[in-house]
């Protein structure tokens, strides 16, 4: 199957990746190649499959409700792209 241009554009928007006009054909071809590979899944007979269960799979562990984290803002914000008065800053969000 060949993935359509509009679909590529939708995927790019959803994943916040901009795709260069020049490369869109290449991107489309390569994605289509991968999708052809994964389309082999459709041949599998999965009627007998139960829900996921591993021999050792256990349930989610739960953590006691106790505060153990302290303020590390300075350590985190020193590696942030842009901050102001303790806030991370980004280009203005539309209301």
């Amino acid at each position: 199957m060949i993935i359509k241009r509009e679909e590529i554009e939708k995927l790019a928007t959803l994943s916040r990746i901009s795709i260069d006009e020049k490369t869109i054909t290449d991107v489309s071809e390569r994605l289509s190649s991968v999708l052809n590979l994964v389309d082999q899944l459709q041949t599998a007979n999965t009627d007998s499959v139960q829900s996921i269960s591993r021999p050792f799979q256990v349930s989610q562990r739960l953590r006691a409700d106790e505060i153990t984290e302290s303020n590390q803002r300075d350590a985190f914000q020193v590696i942030a792209p842009a901050t102001d008065n303790g806030l991370f800053t980004v280009p203005k969000m539309i209301d």
Binding site: I67, E69, N71, F76, F88
Partner: peptide
């Protein structure tokens, strides 16, 4: 009304200085 976040052990109390109660998990480090 828990003391800590749902997935981290940082405090949930209201009104703290910005980002002083956001730990590595809350920041998605």
């Amino acid at each position: 009304a828990t003391k800590t976040k749902i997935f981290s052990a940082a405090s949930t109390s209201f009104g703290a200085e910005p980002n002083t109660q956001a730990c590595a998990i809350d920041l998605a480090m």
